[in-house]
Amino acid sequence: MALLEIKDLTLRFGGLCAVNGLSLEIEENSIRSLIGPNGAGKTCVFNCLTGFYKPSSGDMLFQGKSLLNTKPHIITYGGMARTFQNLRLFKQLSVMENVMSGMHCRTSAGFSAAVFRTKGQQAEERRIREVAEECLDFVGIPDKKHYMAKNLPYGDQRRVEWARALATQPKLLLLDEPAAGLNKEEKARLIDLIARIRDERKITIFLIEHDMGLVMKISEKIFVIDYGIKIAEGSVKEVQDNPRVVEAYLGKEEQEDAV
């Protein structure tokens, strides 16, 4: 059974069809990419998966359970974490506090535990800190934990976001354009990191990306959508050779250049 199964997913805004009858499957422990020209509806797919948008029709099964009418926090609790295309860090809080947010759904202390600082609460706090530090270590910025998030350089802010998502201890990680705004060196480290997330942590990865070099290097399988419709799927080679992909992609790119 696939870890994630999208069946005939459709999302409409008024008359506009952002996602149109999309079906795809993601197997456990794989790395999959979703690509397509700008405005093809990629982020909309993620937003449906994580409960931020309500699909007009279709179904999404995560570990065999439907995600329809499920609130975002329940979905995260169920083991799916995401990052955002435009960084969405808690800017006024420290890097450490940012990453600690991921542990919220794995812990339970409430008002009285906090006020009386019970034994259980203290142990839990220690565990939250340990996990957060470990995640920061994993993404390679253990020394930045006391910075205010907004004071970090862009590349490091991205890493904080990955660490934060990892701290939720997901089974499936959705990365929305993780390489956007990164330089060459940072991209190389990202490729390495994605592989390590899958190999060391056994987390399945589903990513949206514009950087074709990166996508080609790491994904085992690629889905291509355009105007919300899936136009191709398959290995890197298969997709590269698919005339529809070339047409949709390069055609669009030319228009962009013209603007």
Binding site: F13, N47, F52, Y53, K54
Partner: peptide
């Protein structure tokens, strides 16, 4: 959403 408002998918 009120009487005339439509319940649309909130965009982020």
């Amino acid at each position: 959403t009120g009487i005339l408002g439509r319940a649309e998918s909130e965009r982020m």
